[in-house]
């Protein structure tokens, strides 16, 4: 099927060295495969995939923690998420949907699903979210939107 001339042993050796060199110089982030696995786990292929378009970290008054805001874009809906440290190993997640509307909101964390809904101003919050991988799901009418998986730390 493939009529390409084969590589000889020396070619393969050079390619192996190149792969080693590139892997060393520009390694794949160690958590990338795990993040993709997490994101794929409960995604069926019918959802709209939102894109992270903007991220800011704002220092808070005390301590070293900071508030992080991330904006995700869908075709007809934007969600801005703010992540702030809460007590213990948890974080607090506040969100705003634009355009505003009452929708079911889910936050997938490892091993469980947190649920809430947005108010008519488009606001929602999760008080205590364990740090680690999460994925936000917005059920807006017939459309299910998912953000990429991200690490809350």
């Amino acid at each position: 099927m493939n009529a390409d001339p084969p590589f000889d042993a020396a070619d393969l050796d050079v390619l192996r060295q190149l792969r080693g060199a590139w892997t060393e110089a520009d390694p794949v982030p160690p958590d990338l495969v795990e993040t993709v696995h997490f994101a794929l786990e409960l995604t069926s292929g019918t959802e709209e995939i939102m894109r992270a378009v903007e991220e800011h970290a704002l220092p808070v008054a005390k301590g070293d923690d900071s508030t992080r805001t991330i904006t995700f874009d869908g075709t007809e809906l934007t969600v801005m998420v703010s992540v702030a440290p809460a007590s213990g190993a948890a974080v607090r997640v506040d969100g705003w949907l634009t355009p505003p509307g009452v929708h079911q909101i889910e936050l997938r964390v490892q091993g469980e699903l947190l649920r809430t809904s947005s108010d008519d101003g488009g606001r929602f919050a999760f008080d205590r979210v364990p740090r680690g991988l999460v994925q936000l799901v917005v059920r807006a009418g017939g459309t299910v939107l998912v953000t990429p998986a991200m690490v809350l730390s």
Binding site: L32, T35, V36, T43, G45, V146, P148
Partner: peptide, 19 residues
Amino acid sequence: RESSSDVVQHTWLTLLKSI
């Protein structure tokens, strides 16, 4: 690196629609 990670994740999520 961060944008590249996002892009790779987006590609895999998109694959579910077309696989």
